[in-house]
Amino acid sequence: MSARILIIEDEFLVALDMQVGLEDAGHEVVGVGDDWTSAMQLARLNPSVALVDVNLCDGATGPSIGAWLGQEIGCTVIFVTANPRQIDKPIPGALGIMIKPVDSRQVVEAVEFAVAARIGQTTPTPPPCLMLLNA
């Protein structure tokens, strides 16, 4: 099942690797942003899943962006970060955290788990690369 994915990542090569891997797996990447402003603009494209880094061009805004995307847009958020300790409180709509470095295969596995979770068809365990929040 394909999904509409939003990538919020300020490292160009990391974002490109995610985008190529997801598109190769049949998902639609609706956009790539690197800060609050671009996230707000791209959210108009109705993503179902967002991959969000914590530290972006405008600072450590990822948790706030993730909360906004989860609450206001209703998409499932997966944080992809080298700084998981910065996610220090529950965030509505956030499914889990992937710790960088990650490869495109892991990103696809996590997104496909998120899509299944959105429609109530989760597998018994998440992929090893995804740490569930609030689990």
Rank of each mutant, 00 (worst) to 15 (best):
M1L: 11
M1T: 10
S2N: 12
A3K: 06
A3M: 09
I5L: 04
L6H: 08
I7C: 09
I8D: 04
I8F: 04
D10S: 04
L13Y: 06
L16F: 14
M18S: 07
M18Q: 11
Q19H: 13
Q19M: 12
V20C: 09
V20N: 10
V20H: 12
G21M: 08
G21N: 08
L22M: 08
E23F: 14
E23H: 11
D24N: 15
A25V: 04
G26R: 00
G26K: 01
G26N: 02
V29L: 06
V30A: 03
G31P: 07
G31Q: 11
V32E: 04
V32K: 10
D35A: 08
D35M: 09
D35P: 06
W36P: 10
T37H: 12
S38Y: 00
A39K: 07
A39E: 02
A43W: 07
R44M: 10
S48E: 15
A50K: 06
A50L: 06
L51Q: 03
L51P: 07
D53M: 06
N55E: 14
D58R: 02
G62C: 03
G62F: 00
G62H: 01
P63Y: 01
P63K: 06
S64Y: 13
I65R: 03
G66V: 00
A67N: 10
W68N: 02
W68P: 00
W68R: 10
Q71K: 12
Q71E: 13
E72Q: 11
I73T: 10
V77D: 03
V77Y: 02
F79P: 00
V80I: 08
T81S: 08
A82Q: 01
A82L: 03
A82G: 12
N83L: 14
N83S: 15
N83Y: 15
P84S: 06
P84C: 04
Q86A: 15
I87D: 01
I87F: 12
D88W: 09
G93C: 02
L95K: 05
L95A: 00
G96M: 06
G96F: 15
G96H: 11
G96I: 07
I97T: 05
M98S: 04
M98V: 05
I99F: 05
I99V: 13
V102P: 01
R105G: 15
Q106W: 00
V107Q: 00
V107T: 07
E109P: 08
A110I: 00
V111P: 01
E112G: 00
A114L: 02
V115L: 11
V115N: 12
A116Q: 09
A116G: 05
A117E: 14
A117K: 13
I119H: 13
G120H: 09
G120W: 11
T122H: 09
T122L: 07
T123D: 09
P124A: 06
P124F: 00
P124T: 03
P124C: 04
T125W: 14
T125K: 13
P126C: 05
P127N: 04
C129V: 13
C129Q: 11
L130V: 05
M131L: 13
L132S: 03
L132V: 07
L133S: 07
N134V: 08
